[in-house]
Design a protein around this nucleic acid. Structure first.
Lengths: 229, 229
DNA sequence: GGGCAGCGTTCGGATTCCGTATGGGGGACC
DNA sequence: GGTCCCCCATACGGAATCCGAACGCTGCCC
């Protein structure tokens, strides 16, 4: 049973290239030429991943992301051009999972799709993580490193929780600020940086070279680890 | 014998999707459309896990959690939307075990249900603790330090019991207040502090430097010791 | 090479939160 | 009615936490 991928782009050339590359790779591919087309194709095709161009006439990628997210958690990989940085962030805020900037290489696209598929595979339990000698339990709210219990403050835990419950997903500054500090903390990225730093010190096997909390410059952060036993 | 799951949600679409996914996975599933329905279904169906939407008309998820917890310890998995952060926290305070934010993926739901089932497997019923020269037995309701029996009042016992039966787990102020004082004591953390202090004096090897009852500032307390003997 | 933008880290004052002493009030029991 | 015990409201010194500000670093663009 091969994985199903819905490709949404208004440029004929790109649709053809992506379809060819993905089919060659063994995926089951459907294409849509605009937003409306995408939404109806989504219903009948039930894809495992959506590759979505942002810049389209009519219902654009932002709007498609918004509508899909109101009832589906299908992984969404967003395509944008370098000039549309703001749109990219907006799509991620609305729940897109990752992005690629045009032009991009096919190997990179494939790698990102694999990552998204891997993330949605059933795993033993999305409630515990193990990395090096660090062990995290989301239900007990415990973090141990090498057996010793680490103490996380309320805010640190809230941040860790927000990250770890969305493994692999790129979370924007704005999204994290809202998730941890609630309304009214707008775009105060400084505070976020301070707590990311503190959290890394307590949770990363090697805080100087983060392997768990990955920074995505100009956009946000990403929890890199898949849950484990 | 398959595990029994009660799904409570007022949206027809979600009920159907969850039922299908869970039945396909081999679970025995019953659905309820609102709070009242859920409470009566709980009595006849006796589920091993409850999946409970928070936002419902009439008796909502918070209230259902509250009522279930007054006489059952069935694992409760709460579903909420990201905007209802406060409701989520309240449900956890009242005894819900985990939460998922809508929209979520089916694999993630399955993983969390498995985690809850695993967690509720027959616990060793360990009810004895030894730390330093202090010996605690929850079944006999005795505490000895260096051979001498200590006397605990009713409330102190209740608090000790609530803590020690959840070793390692962070228990919020709200949860503890509800567990020990029942309804109506809302968020009166002051009382809790007084009794924690008294309990420490009787139970901690060195009350000035707690090793058993760990305080989590702004959140709650945690019983740090694993059961022994 | 200089300027700039984004990032990580440290420091410390303001604020919130905590532990504990104290005592009033009420119920149980004699 | 008296005594004892327990609950819990209050007060206050001290500890923990938050988060704004400052600084140095890196990579990028002109």
């Amino acid at each position: 049973m091969s994985d199903r991928i819905l490709v949404v782009d208004d440029e004929e050339q790109i649709r053809r290239a992506l379809r060819r590359a993905l089919v060659a790779r063994g995926y089951d591919v459907e294409v849509a030429v605009d937003g409306e087309d995408a939404l109806s194709a989504f219903g009948t095709f039930a894809p495992d991943v959506v590759v979505l161009d942002l810049n389209m006439p009519g219902i654009d990628g932002i709007e498609v992301t918004h509508r899909l997210r109101s009832w589906s958690s299908v992984p969404i990989l967003v395509l944008s051009v370098r000039e549309d940085e703001a749109d990219k962030v907006r799509a991620l805020d609305l729940g897109a999972d990752d992005y690629l900037t045009k032009p991009f290489g096919v190997p990179e696209l494939l790698a990102r799709i694999r990552a998204l598929l891997r993330r949605s595979e059933p795993s033993p339990a999305h409630t515990r993580f193990a990395v090096g000698d660090v062990l995290i339990d989301l239900t007990d709210r415990t973090v141990r490193r090498g057996g010793a219990a680490m103490h996380l403050t309320k805010t640190e835990w809230s941040l860790l929780d927000a990250l770890a419950r969305n493994p692999g997903k790129l979370l924007t500054h704005g999204w994290l600020l809202h998730a941890v500090w609630g309304e009214g903390y707008g775009e105060d990225v400084e505070v976020l940086r301070v707590f990311i730093s503190q959290l890394r010190r307590k949770v990363e096997p090697d805080p100087a070279h983060p392997s768990l909390i990955i920074t995505e410059a100009g956009v946000g952060y990403r929890w890199a680890q898949a849950p484990a036993g």
